[in-house]
């Protein structure tokens, strides 16, 4: 396993983080209690507990301004992990929590979710689940009202964010009348207006058509470049995210299998041992490399792949 080293610019820092969901605990109460009560052993380190853990001894540091893809098999713990970053775990999704998650040095257990939410915004796969108001304007105002801003300031902030995201024309529309791509932009706007330093998106483009997906990703790239907002995206389709991400985190069986730059991940073997669907042009170069027909780097985008292939055959 490889881990990135702690850095003073770390925004999120997880140390020996483990988590068992309450539902799993309830279903296996006797066995888990027996393991927890074993003398002379720290319960979180006990290998007997591994099969019950959704997260297992995670150590992770996330630095400012990165665009990170989080990948892994279904059920590997990706969504669970990001829910610890804004306190949803263990405050909302309850269970047994071991270790530490620091968000800008604040202990996620000690801080209120409302405070952490201003640092870390979370956007879910299905924006419909996140939209509750009768108009886009009310939707965006909701979060701002909850942090107690004055009405004039709220109106000003709504105008600013709608203009920045190019959706001013949607201001008085009902969120349920909007297309999937528009709804996702509104969900991002309502998170953005709280000015978080980190935005985490759990498969934000899964239900969108390819061009709508591209426009949402272009928008996230703009936020990342203009405002230095750290973006973390959980994504199953590597081909969609590779043109954007600078780092990849691979989660497997509740652990971090690898956390490194995109180039490093593609050129080492961890990714290829998982169930993550890898673009076929990458597999092509991986095979050519294994057969010693090609010795350069594995390309991350199809444009790079075609460029290398042209040189190879000419």
């Amino acid at each position: 396993m490889t881990f990135s080293q702690p850095n003073p610019k770390d925004q999120i820092n997880a140390k020996n983080l483990s988590f068992v969901y309450e539902s799993v605990y309830k279903a296996n109460r006797d066995e888990i209690s027996a393991i927890m009560n074993k003398e002379g052993e720290k319960p979180s380190d006990s290998p007997d507990l591994d099969k019950y853990k959704a997260l297992n001894l995670i150590n992770l540091s996330i630095c400012q301004g990165k665009f990170i893809a989080m990948v892994g098999d279904t059920g590997s713990g990706k969504s669970t992990l990001v829910r610890t970053f804004n306190g949803l775990i263990p405050s909302f999704y309850r269970g047994i929590f071991f270790g530490y998650v620091g968000v800008f040095g604040k202990d996620s257990i000690q801080e209120k979710i409302s405070t952490l939410s201003q640092d870390v915004g979370l956007v879910f796969q299905n924006p419909e689940n996140q939209l509750v108001a009768m108009t886009v304007e009310r939707e965006i105002a909701f979060g701002l009202e909850n942090i107690g801003l004055k009405r004039e300031l709220i109106q000003k902030k709504i105008s600013q964010i709608l203009e920045y995201l190019g959706i001013s024309h949607l201001r008085m529309r009902h969120p349920y009348e909007l297309s999937g791509g528009e709804q996702q932009r509104v969900a991002i706007a309502s998170i953005m207006t709280l000015e978080p330093s980190i935005i985490i998106l759990d498969e934000p483009t899964a239900t969108l058509d390819p061009q709508a997906a591209e426009s949402v990703l272009n928008l996230l790239e703009k936020l990342n470049k203009d405002k230095k907002i750290t973006i973390i995206i959980i994504e199953h389709r590597l081909e969609v995210i590779l043109p954007y991400c600078t780092e990849i985190i691979i989660v497997q069986n509740g652990q971090i299998l690898q956390h490194a730059s995109t180039q490093e991940v593609l050129n080492s073997d961890y990714l290829y041992s998982t169930n993550v669907r890898i673009p076929e042009y990458i597999i092509l170069f991986k095979k050519l490399k294994s057969n010693k027909i090609y010795s350069g780097i594995i390309p991350s985008t199809i444009e790079q792949a075609a460029h290398i292939m042209r040189e190879l055959i000419s």
Partner: peptide, 26 residues
């Protein structure tokens, strides 16, 4: 229709569009 080319279609297009003289391999 907001669709994108499959990877294999795009890959072949990118390889051939900038090679005026096509080799046997291409």
């Amino acid at each position: 229709s907001s669709l994108i080319e499959p990877q294999i279609v795009k890959f072949k297009r990118l390889i051939t569009e900038s090679i005026p003289q096509q080799s046997n391999v291409s």
